[in-house]
Computed example of a mutant assay.
Amino acid sequence: MMQRNIALVASNAPAALEAEAELRPMYDFVDMAEADLVIALGGDGFLLHVLHQMLDRRRTLPVFGMNRGSVGFLMNDFRAEALLERLSNASQYIIHPLSGEITTIDNERHILPAINEISLLRETRQAAKLEVMVNGKTMLDELICDGLLVSTPAGSTAYNLSANGPILPLESALLALTPISPFRPRRWRGAILPEATSFQFNVLEAVKRPVSAVADQREIRDIKHVRVTADRSRPLTLLFDPDHGLDDRIAMEQFAF
């Protein structure tokens, strides 16, 4: 059995706090600063919060999530017993976050990471008008839409799927570019592109038709352009039970009704 320095963190949901109270007397947990592995109790939103904290602190650790939330797509089942054995046998999945370089109409510059997706969304009743560039080349002179998003494989079953975007296998090294309610060109449904692709989105009529940029849960309003790339310098590691891997869940989502 492997010996690990394990930290335990929980969301403020009652089910997560109850699970934390059950686990703490059973195992020897350490503070996050001393840990080489983290157990996260909560839902998918809390797991993303934990991963973002690691990116902010520039110290990433493998995370084994256990579902004490609602959907729990990125989580393992909660079981208190045999936890160390589960960690020893867990499968690793490496995900690379996105990096969004966001510039506002006031020339404020922000750099935000995203694990699921970076999306551009109209702020008012008027549709957004966007120029879409891929690897420095203009692919769409004018996309009239409610918005647009770039999704990682890990996020492809989240907002991307709700916007009728494709589901990407976790190890595909691909990104999904998905329009949100496109009006013109009406028949464009997006693109699947290599992870090394560089995207730039320029907001046309940015004052008249204001647009916000959202990196997972962080929003910057009144933007004029956004550049999105994959950040391979800060890989994140998720751990899953061998019989409940994320790749299996992604495959099953493609047959769900």
Score class of each variant (00 low, 15 high):
122 R>M: 01
135 N>T: 06
82 A>F: 04
110 H>E: 11
47 L>F: 06
87 L>I: 09
155 G>I: 11
146 D>W: 00
222 D>G: 08
39 I>D: 11
221 R>P: 01
43 G>M: 09
33 A>I: 13
63 V>A: 07
27 Y>A: 06
176 A>V: 09
80 A>F: 05
167 I>E: 07
172 S>M: 10
54 M>E: 08
30 V>T: 12
166 P>D: 15
6 I>N: 08
142 E>M: 13
17 L>M: 15
237 T>W: 06
45 G>M: 04
142 E>A: 14
51 L>H: 03
236 L>G: 08
237 T>P: 11
89 N>M: 12
9 V>D: 02
236 L>A: 00
29 F>T: 07
188 W>L: 00
185 P>L: 02
98 L>Q: 03
204 L>E: 06
6 I>M: 08
117 E>D: 15
108 E>P: 04
204 L>C: 06
2 M>L: 15
206 A>H: 13
257 F>W: 13
197 T>F: 09
185 P>H: 11
104 T>I: 03
187 R>T: 14
80 A>C: 14
194 P>T: 02
245 G>M: 10
162 S>R: 04
236 L>P: 15
135 N>G: 08
105 I>W: 00
250 I>A: 12
135 N>C: 10
16 A>Y: 11
244 H>Q: 13
69 G>V: 07
131 E>D: 05
85 E>I: 02
217 Q>Y: 04
122 R>T: 02
88 S>D: 15
89 N>G: 15
208 K>P: 00
58 R>Y: 02
